[in-house]
């Protein structure tokens, strides 16, 4: 379970690529690919294994002034846990 203190990173089997047709970021993994929304892409790009989720939320908060912090954190955790369930994001050990 990814929490506020976790340092998430892309799983070893996953790789990011910009799609030449849509210009969106894709997560590629064995036999599959997933196109990310611009917001999801921004979150996933910050999952370097260095940043904690709290720090990722801070960074996003700076660019989205309308949403309050708790809302952003909930959305970030929902996305990252959904990706973790699919083994695309993992906690840095």
């Amino acid at each position: 379970m990814i929490s506020s203190a976790s340092r998430p990173q892309l799983a070893a089997k996953a790789r990011l690529r910009r799609d030449r047709r849509t210009d969106r970021l894709m997560i590629l993994y064995p036999e599959k690919g997933m196109e990310l929304s611009p917001t999801a892409a921004e979150i996933v790009r910050l999952c370097t294994g260095e940043n904690t989720v709290a720090e990722i939320v801070e960074r996003l908060g700076a660019s989205y002034t309308t949403a309050d912090r708790a809302t952003i954190e909930r959305e970030v955790l929902d996305l990252l846990n959904a990706l973790a369930d699919r083994c695309l994001i993992e906690e840095r050990s």
Binding site: R17, D19, R20, R21, M26, L28, E31, G33
Partner: peptide, 10 residues
């Protein structure tokens, strides 16, 4: 293939 939009190769 890449030019056509392919992103994965098996």
């Amino acid at each position: 293939a890449e030019e056509l939009g392919v992103v994965q190769v098996s």
